[in-house]
Nucleic acid binder design. Structure first.
Length: 431
RNA sequence: UCCGCGAUAGCUCAAUGGUGGAGCAUUCGGCUGUUAACCGAAGGGUUGCAAGUUCGAGUCUUGCUCGCGGAGCCA
């Protein structure tokens, strides 16, 4: 027999069906029991009258504790008073497994307690909604690139050295070859892929051993990084804005119910349409000065600065052409002003900060060698990367989008720890 | 690493230096339409750890541990 789930019930009104799931909540009133069943696809109120079931079944309803698993059979009926629009009149019920006292009650809990019970917290309705939106965003990311002729080009997670040289890396012994490091970016490998396949993207976990302790940071997070041969900075920004529009509009099209559960004000999301505003770093600094911020030209933008800048716009804003000194070694200099890098950061609205960082890459061998020396990076570790400039170097560009920051922004959350099933942070690696 | 805040029942929080309470959860009882249901009752405590001040410390002082928020760094 084909199993039916709660999300399909609108097609089964008037039928008798059997459902499997867990008890989300229960209310009782004399000879009446309201059992809220959840099965991962939705919630259903199962109404049990004492007179319409056997005494044994009615007794079961009192034994069902929160999160007990059970099988329930009954008739599906349209019901305006029910949240999902349908209800079940229970005819039969079997307990699959009785749950002990469940730690997460319908009342409020603190962050520490919930994170300690993350393996159970993911059952809660808001967490389920967030994880479904995360999945939809991941699908949008894959669809977007797949539909545009990109090839998925998986980068290694164990790497011999720093990709960018700046951040701290997680280190692990690697047989007789000394230490290996968990990747902080697949980008350099993606560049090799772009020279082979033209348009590629990497999508996988990324690791930063920085002692960051903010609502925007995880030590393990997912990043998607497209890299395109023959693209310049403008092409890169065109791609980024089309990409962001596609992601947000996909979620709006398919995940309205989940956004409602999260009480997300979708007007901020509906505004995410091309073109996205593009301003230079110089213009961004001007905005800061106009708002009375004492900002020294040449510094990188801080979190508070990003919020002030993004608050000027109703949609994500692209800030491009940063001082090259605050950016990575592989970024190409602006031919019209060598003090600037052909970099672009995309700042999400509502103070969510940087969700994309990208650039046109330095394609000249000699200049790249110079940069590696300036940054005191070990040249031999980058010899394979330099080969990309020795054998048919071309202009190319790409960017990285942080998945969890994007989910956090689209869901309107106040911390990225809820955007991934099991967050890894500086003071937490359990459960 | 630095700055700020915090730790009291299973959970969320109260308690003027003077007998540690409430709501939820649990158990029992009541209710035929509940929406974090409601009403009644019961059980539940080494106040994060260690020392100090005091006749007396959950409360004041010092140290430690753990957590939360922010900065820097970044996606």
């Amino acid at each position: 027999m084909k199993k039916i789930c709660i999300s399909e019930l609108k097609n089964h009104v008037g039928e008798s069906v059997t459902l499997y799931g867990w008890l989300y909540n229960k209310r009782s009133s004399g000879k009446l029991r309201f059992l809220i069943l959840r099965d991962g696809t939705g919630y259903l109120q199962c109404v049990t009258f004492k007179n319409s079931v056997s005494p044994e079944v009615f007794e079961f309803t009192d034994k069902l504790t929160q999160e007990s698993s059970f099988e329930v059979t009954g008739t599906i009926r349209e019901e305006a008073r029910a949240t999902g629009g349908v209800e079940m009149d229970v005819a039969d019920l079997k307990i699959i497994s009785h749950a002990g006292e469940y730690p997460i009650t319908p009342k409020e809990h603190g962050v520490e307690f919930l994170m300690d019970h993350r393996h159970l917290w993911v059952r809660s309705s808001k967490q389920v909604a967030i994880l479904k939106i995360r999945h939809r965003i991941v699908k949008a990311i894959r669809d977007f690139f797949d539909e545009r002729g990109f090839t998925l080009f998986d980068a290694p997670i164990l790497t011999p050295a720093a990709c960018e040289g700046t951040s701290t890396l997680f280190e692990t012994p690697y047989f007789d070859l000394g230490n290996a490091y968990l990747t902080q970016s697949g980008q350099l490998y993606a560049e090799a892929g772009a020279m082979a396949l033209g348009k590629v993207y990497t999508f996988g976990p990324t690791f930063r051993a920085e002692k960051s302790k903010t609502r925007r940071h995880l030590t393990e997070f997912w990043m998607v990084e497209p890299e395109v041969a023959f693209n310049d900075l403008n092409d890169n920004m065109d791609l980024a804005e089309e990409f962001l529009e596609y992601i947000v509009q996909s979620v709006l099209a398919d995940r309205q119910e989940e956004l409602k559960i999260l009480e997300r004000d979708v007007k901020f999301l509906e505004a995410v349409k091309r073109p996205l505003p593009r301003i230079t770093y110089d213009a961004a600094v001007e905005i800061l000065h106009k708002n009375g911020v004492e900002f020294e030209y040449g510094n990188d933008l801080g979190a508070a600065d990003e919020t002030i800048i993004s608050n000027q716009f109703d949609r994500p804003v692209m800030v491009h052409r940063y001082p090259s000194e605050v950016k990575a070694f592989y970024m190409k200099r602006d031919p019209e002003n060598p003090k600037l890098a052909l970099a672009v950061d995309v700042l999400a609205p509502e103070g969510y900060g940087e969700i994309i960082g990208g650039s046109q890459r330095e394609d000249n061998l000699d200049l790249l060698l110079e940069r590696i020396k300036e940054h005191n990076l070990p040249e031999e570790a980058f010899s394979w990367y330099l080969d990309l400039r020795r054998y048919g170097s071309v202009p190319h560009a790409g960017f990285g989008l942080g998945l969890e920051r994007t989910v956090s922004w689209i869901c309107g959350l106040d911390h990225v720890r809820e955007t991934i099933p099991f967050a890894r942070m500086i003071y937490r690696n359990t459960p």
